[in-house]
Every structure is written in C-alpha cells, then in structure tokens.
Amino acid sequence: NITNLCPFDEVFNATRFASVYAWNRKRISNCVADYSVLYNFAPFFAFKCYGVSPTKLNDLCFTNVYADSFVIRGNEVSQIAPGQTGNIADYNYKLPDDFTGCVIAWNSNKLDSKVGGNYNYLYRLFRKSNLKPFERDISTEIYQAGNKPCNGVAGFNCYFPLRSYGFRPTYGVGHQPYRVVVLSFELLHAPATVCGPKKST
C-alpha cells in the first residue's frame, strides 16, 4: 500500500531547467500520482495528452512514469508532439509516433530571460542525422557541412553544433522561453508502482 505522493513538484518547480539538447529525465516510481494538482495549476500554456485522457489519469496505474524537462522557445512547443519535424524534434528531443503521455508547457519569461540576454539555454542546430525517439545527444563535436574534414576547428563550413537562445524579456511570445515537462507513461508486464489516488488503496 503506497502512500507517499509522487515528487512532481520537484520537477515542475525546479529552480533551473535543462537546455533542450541535454534534456533532463527523472524516473518516478513507487508513489501516488495526483495529476489533478498539475491539471489545476493555472499558468499552463499547453497540457496535451496522447493515448490517454488527462482527466482519467487519476484512475490509472503505470509501471513507471518518466518526467523529461527542458526549455525551448514558445514557437517550438508545437514540435513536442508525435510525428513532428523541425530543429527541436529532429536534433534535440524526439517523441515516438506511438507516444503515451502528456506534454505540459508554460511561459517562463520572468524566470529564464535576462536584460542583455540569458545565454545559458542551448539547443542543437546541426546534426548529421535525426534523433531516434528519446535519444539524447550531448556531443559538442564540430559539425562538418562541406567535404573538408574540420579536425575539431570551427570555421568555413565547420560549425559548433550548439546555439544559444539568448532570451531577453522584451522578445515577442514566440521567442520567449517556455518550460516543458513531458510525462511518459510506461506500461510493462510488471507490477504497477505509480497509481492515481483512487487506485492506491
């Protein structure tokens, strides 16, 4: 009989979020998941679920829940969905086509923008091939755009693969920082350890 609540607040209220190319993952297990707390949290810009209804989450049990978190621009949030393409979905964070879970995003301009620009948040701009679902690539190898080998030196046709967002408070909404948490639900042939409040007695 599990009684402790799942530590969703640790994920959602973290002081610093990860850059999207180096997205953070927390495994959540052996706890009671009260999703209504999240669902009623006012400032969400997006709360979209795939393969599961957000209002039914509290009735369900899962083997594991993974909480992935990172920061992207407002106009990139739409790429955090199954079957998407674009710089983020291709080179930074890719969801599987059969994704079961929820994508939760909110504007973090007050936290993550600075006058003069916040350059701490990076994304991958160049990559030889697209990421596989949930693949994480933190390499900083110089990207070779031409035929000539770069030998690890940036220059003509040789690019550092990461780019900084440089968030400023005055940017338009599409270019403002958004914090994103992706909850993915794993249902294995194993005992369920993460259940909603109704199922955990």
Rank of each mutant, 00 (worst) to 15 (best):
N1G: 06
N1R: 12
N1D: 03
T3L: 03
T3D: 03
L5F: 03
P7L: 05
P7T: 07
P7C: 10
D9L: 08
V11I: 01
A14R: 00
T15N: 14
R16L: 11
A18Y: 06
A18K: 15
A22N: 03
N24H: 07
K26H: 10
R27L: 06
R27E: 04
R27M: 04
S29A: 07
S29M: 05
N30S: 05
V32R: 12
V32W: 14
Y35L: 10
Y35M: 09
Y35F: 11
S36A: 13
Y39H: 10
F41K: 11
F41D: 11
A42E: 13
P43D: 09
P43A: 05
F44I: 10
F44T: 04
F45S: 07
K48S: 02
K48D: 01
K48Q: 02
S53M: 12
S53A: 06
P54K: 09
P54F: 04
T55Y: 03
T55Q: 03
N58R: 05
D59H: 11
L60H: 07
L60T: 14
N64A: 15
N64M: 12
V65A: 02
Y66N: 03
A67C: 01
N75T: 01
N75A: 02
S78Y: 12
S78A: 05
A81G: 00
G83N: 05
N87C: 02
N87D: 12
D90R: 10
T100Y: 15
I104L: 06
N109Q: 01
K110N: 05
K114A: 00
K114Y: 01
K114T: 00
V115N: 00
G117H: 00
G117A: 00
N118D: 06
Y119K: 04
Y119E: 05
Y119P: 03
N120Q: 03
N120D: 07
N120A: 15
L122M: 14
Y123K: 04
K128A: 04
K128M: 12
N130L: 06
N130E: 09
K132R: 14
K132M: 14
K132E: 01
K132I: 15
P133S: 10
F134G: 07
E135S: 03
I138W: 11
I138G: 10
T140R: 15
T140A: 12
T140C: 03
E141A: 11
Y143W: 08
Q144R: 03
A145F: 15
A145M: 05
G146D: 07
N147C: 04
N147L: 12
N147Q: 10
K148F: 10
K148Y: 14
P149V: 12
P149R: 11
N151M: 04
N151P: 13
N151D: 01
G152R: 01
V153R: 11
A154M: 11
G155W: 11
F156E: 13
F156T: 15
N157G: 04
N157S: 01
N157R: 10
F160I: 14
F160M: 04
F160S: 14
L162M: 00
R163G: 10
S164R: 03
G166Q: 08
R168K: 04
V173K: 02
V173E: 13
V173I: 03
V173C: 06
G174T: 09
G174M: 08
H175A: 05
Y178H: 01
L183M: 09
S184A: 06
L187M: 09
L188H: 07
L188R: 12
L188D: 15
H189N: 02
H189R: 06
A190H: 14
P191G: 11
P191D: 11
A192S: 11
A192N: 01
T193S: 08
V194D: 01
V194S: 03
G196A: 15
P197S: 02
P197T: 10
K199Y: 05
K199Q: 14
K199S: 11
S200P: 14
S200H: 15
T201H: 04
T201M: 15
